[in-house]
Design a binder for these strands. Structure first.
Length: 341
DNA sequence: CGCTCTGTTCGC
DNA sequence: GCGAACAGAGC
């Protein structure tokens, strides 16, 4: 398993999926107005990755490079090390070698992200990743369940990380669930636009309830507010986001218990990460927001609630966002005689 | 300092 | 034209 895991890992190094921090940044708007944050860049990257990731995920089963291929490919140094190790292991483990690409992919996801820092620590929010900018790159569906299982093994100390993990796991839009067309969603997570990811998300949460409860999944403490909005408490200021680099470094060390290493490293890397910005995660789609009000509004998209009704007499249109309603009035009823204003 | 409101912007 | 998200202004 470990060997297989490494190879895939490399491949996905840049996928936002694994980068909770950015994942969050959901979607990204290719926007322009966020000069300061890294998110935009990450976002665009993320989107690209996301799409590519989806394709990749689909292809992964067939496209997963063999260990040898990986060795030849340029990769992060740490990964190379891992690969080298993995290769060595493979020599001794023929069975793994023969494993199908799909299996490898699966192994990769499950073990890397979840078991180890990837899943939990690494996913933290630098926000965004699992914010987003979150939204993230696509992670193949198959691994989720496995990864979850792995998660259960992680130490409770990972709590904060776990929280993010959830958010990062999928920023899958509720659309999927609702079968509504997704727009920009980004997902912060791997599944990115992949609707298939939604299942993962849920699977991740549900599949290992015990893990969540025992591990003190951050969201567990959250409370559902009105409109099904999940009210999460802001992350602790000292919340330790794990840097991917750190994780990689950790992973580079061959160890039976990967998560232990990650756990160890995570703390040290905290200082390097910016405080998480998106502390409020939509429980439905795992999308993270920096403001509770944003989360509330976002929740309308899931509930279908449209509290803002057009004031125009003949217009019964309703909107989930007040500004959209105003826009509507300005644009559609600008000339209307009934414009009170 | 944190939140809500509002306007702007992006993507469809 | 509309849904959705973000950032700034104001409280």
């Amino acid at each position: 398993m470990e060997v297989a895991t490494y190879a895939p890992y490399r491949q996905h190094t840049f996928q936002p999926d694994f980068n909770p921090h950015y994942n969050q940044y959901h979607e990204s708007r290719s926007q322009t107005s966020h000069p300061v944050s890294v998110h935009p860049a990450m976002t665009s990257q993320y989107q690209d990755v996301r799409r590519a990731g989806q394709r990749q995920a689909l292809q992964q089963s067939s496209a997963v490079p063999t260990s040898q291929d990986d060795a030849n490919k340029p990769s992060l140094p740490s990964i190379s090390n891992l690969l080298g190790i993995a290769d060595g292991d493979r020599a001794s483990l023929p069975s793994q070698e023969t494993s199908s690409p799909a299996q490898q992919a699966q192994a990769y996801y499950s073990s890397a992200p979840t078991e180890s820092a990837f899943g939990q620590g690494y996913v933290t929010v630098a926000e965004p990743m699992p914010s987003t900018r979150g939204p993230l790159p696509p992670s193949p569906p198959p691994m989720r369940s496995d990864s979850v299982v792995e998660t259960t093994h992680s130490p409770t100390s990972m709590v904060g990380q776990s929280y993010f993990l959830g958010s990062s796991l999928n920023n899958v839009e509720a659309h999927q669930q609702r079968s509504m067309p997704v727009k920009r969603h980004s997902v912060p997570m791997p599944g990115g636009g992949m609707y298939t990811t939604s299942p993962y998300t849920m699977a991740a949460y549900n599949s290992s309830p015990s893990a969540m409860s025992t591990s003190s999944y951050y969201s567990a403490d959250g409370v559902y507010g009105m409109n099904n909005v999940y009210q999460q408490r802001p992350l602790p200021s000292n919340f330790p986001p794990v840097m991917p680099g750190a994780v990689i470094a950790a992973s580079s060390v061959p160890a039976p218990n990967m998560w232990e290493h990650h756990h160890y490293i995570a703390p040290s890397s905290q200082t390097t990460y910016p405080q998480s910005q998106d502390r409020y995660v939509c429980q439905t789609c795992n999308k993270a927001f920096s403001r509770p009000s944003s989360l509330k509004i976002h929740n309308h998209s899931h509930t279908g609630e449209k509290p803002f009704k057009c004031t125009q007499p003949g217009c019964g249109k309703a909107f989930s966002v007040r500004s959209n309603m105003k826009r509507h009035e300005r644009g559609c009823h600008a000339g209307s005689s009934n414009m009170l204003a």
